[in-house]
Structures are given as structure tokens and as C-alpha cells.
């Protein structure tokens, strides 16, 4: 069992989240954006697990399970959307999908 202060796993979660965010903002390819979103979701899940460990309660892990469900749904719809965008725009460039510009 871990004996370090829980600050450290929380720091790991924040670091992963920031990396995912950076990925979303940097990458122009839809597939990579989706991957970065997965990273962010995973980081959030990690924070919940830390909380579960801190209090010795199962609720945090339940939340992790729900995040998993969310991630699965998001990937399913996201991938289908990517297929459609690819079909419509013949590219995966996120900046090319700007029909909603003002």
C-alpha cells in the first residue's frame, strides 16, 4: 500500500490533464485531438481514484467507472464523426472544418 502523501498522485493527475489540454490545443488532426481528450478524461479519473483512497470510500471508484462509460461513448460518437468529416472534407484537419465562422 502506498504511503506517500496523496499530493503526489494528485500532481500526477494535474500533469496528465495539462498535457492532454496542450495536446488538444496543439494538434490539428482530429484523431490526435480525440486521443488528447482521452488523456484528460483519464487524468480526471485518476483524481477520483485518489479521492477514494484518501477517504477509504468506494464512491470515487464508482465515479471512475462512470468516467469510463463517458469515455467509451465519446470515443464511439467521436470516431463516427471523424469518419463523416473525413468523408465530407476529405481531410482530418480540424481547422478546415470552420463552416461556422462568423
Amino acid at each position: 500500500m502506498l504511503t506517500v502523501p496523496l499530493l503526489q498522485p494528485l500532481l500526477l493527475a494535474v500533469l496528465l490533464f495539462a498535457l492532454g489540454l496542450t495536446g488538444v490545443l496543439v494538434r490539428r488532426n482530429f484523431v490526435f485531438i480525440l486521443m488528447s481528450i482521452e488523456i484528460m478524461l483519464n487524468a480526471a479519473g485518476l483524481a477520483f481514484i485518489v479521492a477514494a483512497t484518501r477517504w477509504g470510500q468506494a464512491d470515487g471508484q464508482v465515479m471512475f467507472a462512470f468516467i469510463l462509460v463517458l469515455a467509451a461513448s465519446e470515443v464511439a460518437v467521436g470516431l463516427a464523426l471523424i469518419l463523416r468529416i473525413r468523408h465530407r472534407l476529405t481531410t482530418l484537419d480540424a481547422d478546415a472544418a470552420d463552416l461556422l465562422r462568423g
Binding site: L25, A94, D95, A97, D98, L100, R101, G102
Partner: peptide, 12 residues
């Protein structure tokens, strides 16, 4: 309206 670029990364 200049902020409405239509780019998802911009919004994010």
C-alpha cells in the same frame, strides 16, 4: 464576430 473563427481548437 472576429472571434467566431469556426475552429474548434480556437474555441477550446
Amino acid at each position: 464576430h472576429q472571434s467566431q473563427t469556426g475552429r474548434i481548437r480556437w474555441y477550446a
